[in-house]
């Protein structure tokens, strides 16, 4: 078990290195000039030259790479050319918003996906099953960016029910920044109004972001449940007179949870990708919008920082999934 995790840890480091290596060289496929991106149209030639020297952009690529790796080893992700401050600082500022949104979207995924899947499996081929399957098919095929724009139009503009942008109403005084998660910060400050407000602001973007993975999860849950329900021991349990609900929750769900868990790891990673589009449309100050703006202004140190962070988070999620797997299924022993 221990050596397995050592190996996994090495793997995470290897992935991290691969991510930076790949992004770095992708970023240098085409001769780009981030100096102009940062300084704008009116900048003088001397200023551009000075900027290139300051950020080492005048050096050959391999040298730039070595410098980057050297800094990375000491935890320095370099400076963003667009925001002109440390990428690590930017990530610290923007990641909590993404985390908040992803967690909320993940809850949407779970709360919609699992019950819908179970319902469909128990009512196989009945109206509710068909409804769930059709909705899941639609959810899996709807472009997230359009859904975002459409729901904003319907819920914020036409019905005027939910806020259309941001993490907190402008008239609500933001709670002191402790964790960067507005909801948590509001709780820490015992500011209930801000807490409720932050939840309201989360609803639309979290739903938009979570729907796609909820659709996949519902399908998966349904299929797994169907399979489990047809197993002998369930039939035996039912024959022995164990009440319906107990069968479902004690036996079937427990056994269906393993394949579902595997899927969840992947879905959580997918949420980070979806956040790119959702955050851009909802003015959500997370790393998804940050990386889009950075890529648009050819700010590759920032893009690399984000890919590195997300790559690590992804690897971490996989590790946790494995751990949970071992915990839930005593048959699995890692060696």
């Amino acid at each position: 078990m221990f050596s397995y995790f050592i190996r996994r840890l090495f793997f995470v480091i290897f992935v991290a290195w691969g991510v930076t290596f790949a992004t770095f060289f992708i970023a240098n496929v085409v001769p780009i000039d981030p100096a102009i991106a940062a300084l704008g149209d009116n900048a003088r030639e001397e200023q551009i030259q000075e900027f290139r020297e300051r950020y080492g952009l005048d050096k050959p690529i391999w040298q730039q790479y070595l410098i980057y790796m050297g800094r990375l080893a000491s935890g320095d992700l370099g400076n963003s050319l667009r925001t002109q401050r440390a990428v690590a600082e930017d990530l610290r500022e923007f990641f909590p918003a993404t985390l908040e949104l992803s967690v909320a979207a993940f809850l949407v995924t779970l709360l919609l996906g699992v019950p819908a899947g179970i319902l469909a499996a128990l009512r196989q081929n009945k109206a509710s099953d068909v409804t769930v399957r059709v909705l899941a098919l639609m959810g899996g095929a709807t472009p997230v960016f359009f859904l975002a724009v459409l729901l904003q139009y319907v819920f914020a503009r036409q019905l005027d029910l939910l806020p259309v942008q941001g993490r907190l109403d402008g008239f609500t005084f933001p709670p002191p920044r402790v964790t960067g998660l507005v909801g948590v910060d509001a709780l820490l400050a015992r500011d209930w109004a801000a807490f409720v407000d932050s939840l309201l602001h989360l609803m639309l973007p979290a739903f938009v972001l979570g729907l796609f993975s909820a659709a996949i999860l519902a399908r998966m849950t349904r299929a797994t449940m169907l399979e489990v329900l047809s197993q002998d021991y369930i039939r035996t349990a039912r024959a022995k007179g164990v009440a319906g609900r107990a069968v479902i929750f004690r036996h079937a769900l427990k056994n269906a949870s393993l394949p579902i868990l595997t899927l969840l790891g992947g879905l959580l990673g997918g949420l980070l990708s979806g956040a790119v589009l959702t955050e851009t449309i909802f003015s959500w100050p997370g790393i998804g919008r940050y990386v889009t703006q950075s890529a648009t202004s050819l700010d590759f140190p920032a893009v690399m920082g984000v890919t590195l962070l997300v790559g690590l988070v992804y690897a971490l999620i996989n590790l946790i999934t494995d751990l949970l797997y071992a915990f839930l299924d005593p048959r699995i022993r890692y060696s």
Binding site: V19, A22, G269, S273, T292, V303, V306, T307, Y314
Partner: peptide, 9 residues
């Protein structure tokens, strides 16, 4: 391990 959209971008 890459987030697909970010890498593609």
């Amino acid at each position: 391990a890459f987030p697909s959209l970010i890498l593609a971008m």
